[in-house]
């Protein structure tokens, strides 16, 4: 009976069906290709940054990246100097002042953003009413949507003088001003991620804590935050990565003096600011040009490792909380 009810397809139908399958197959391949694009782009970024970056070593030694022994006319002797001074008779390409500058901006920025970000996220997820959340979340998105050049402009024209008035610093533009600007830019990212981590904590745990007689604050401090701690640390690592990579704010607000210092009120130059300030005026294929790509490679590797670490922590946390 069954075989009788099946009508045999004509050749034409078979052909069109085949065409149909071919179309579906083609579309699927194209979508796979689109999916692979992001992997390809990450690989291409690696490839092209390093391809240009390693050519620096054709003319310079790896030790130049730490420092160079040069004759100092003031002290009248040879001294070992860790300097970035690319446009000079004897160019110096030490990465130490740049990395130092980047850390001096990114670390305080992450700390400021994390203190406010974690506080704000706890408030949003544990205390705020539903209406307040409805209002605060889009506002945070608007804050995240402010272009970094606008924050940089604000720090440069208004906030820098304000902070100089408070702290009486030597330089109007310094690492601290940059750090505050970067913190403003990093804050929404940290809030969003920490809030996600807090919301992923199962309700049962909170209820159990309340049932044992704990107050709201005790529940937050002893139950919710410890459970979400890996998510919170992932958020901070990611925030640190963003702070390291922030460009326009630091170009405009940190003063750009490449010096090795631990003073947060000193003018500093970060890796990002260095590339932004110098790549425009450099001859393609020169030692200086390759040095800038090398700085880019170092920066990219650092942020890549930070992003990956945060990603791995988050994946582990999700797996744990799902159990």
């Amino acid at each position: 009976m069954r075989s009788m009810s099946v009508s045999h397809p004509t050749t034409h139908e078979l052909l069109s069906q085949k065409g149909f399958r071919l179309k579906e197959w083609l579309i699927e391949r194209m979508l796979v290709a689109a999916g692979i694009t992001s992997i390809a782009i990450i690989l291409l970024i690696f490839l092209f940054l390093f391809k240009e970056g390693v050519q620096f070593f054709k003319t310079a030694s790896p030790f130049d990246l730490i420092g160079k022994t040069v004759f100092d006319p003031y002290e009248e002797r040879h001294v070992f100097k860790m300097m970035w001074q690319a446009v000079s008779v004897l160019p110096k390409y030490s990465l130490i002042p740049l990395i130092c500058g980047s850390l001096l901006v990114a670390l305080p920025a992450t700390i400021i953003a994390a203190v406010f970000g974690i506080g704000c996220a706890i408030y949003l997820s544990e205390m705020a009413s539903a209406q307040l959340r409805e209002f605060l979340k889009p506002t945070l998105e608007l804050l995240a949507g402010i272009p970094s050049v606008v924050i940089g402009f604000f720090m440069l024209t208004l906030a820098a003088s304000f902070f100089q008035g408070i702290f009486h610093t030597k330089f109007r533009l310094n690492a601290f001003v940059g750090a505050v600007g970067v913190a403003i830019a990093t804050f929404p990212i940290i809030v969003t991620l920490v809030e996600d981590a807090l919301r992923a904590v199962p309700r049962d745990l909170r209820d159990a804590s309340y049932a044992l007689g704990a107050t709201k604050w005790q529940t937050i401090w002893d139950t919710v935050v410890p459970t979400a701690i890996s998510g919170i640390s992932a958020a901070m690592i990611l925030g640190f990565g963003r702070a390291l990579g922030e460009t326009m704010i630091v170009v405009m607000a940190t003063g750009k003096a490449p010096i090795v210092t631990g003073n947060i009120f000193s003018s500093v130059r970060t890796m990002t600011a260095n590339i932004a300030a110098e790549l425009g005026s450099v001859a393609q294929g020169s030692e200086h040009y390759y040095a800038l790509f090398l700085v880019g490679s170092v920066l990219f590797t650092m942020t890549f490792v930070l992003n990956l670490t945060s990603e791995i922590i988050l994946t582990k946390m999700r797996r744990k909380l799902r159990m």
Binding site: I39, I42, L49, T247, L279, F304, L306, N307, E311
Partner: peptide, 25 residues
Amino acid sequence: RMIRAAVNNLAGVPSIIFGLFGVGF
């Protein structure tokens, strides 16, 4: 998993690196 990791990482690449990539690539 690789694609998702790549997308997440791409979101965290510093914007100036995209500038360098644009020039180099």
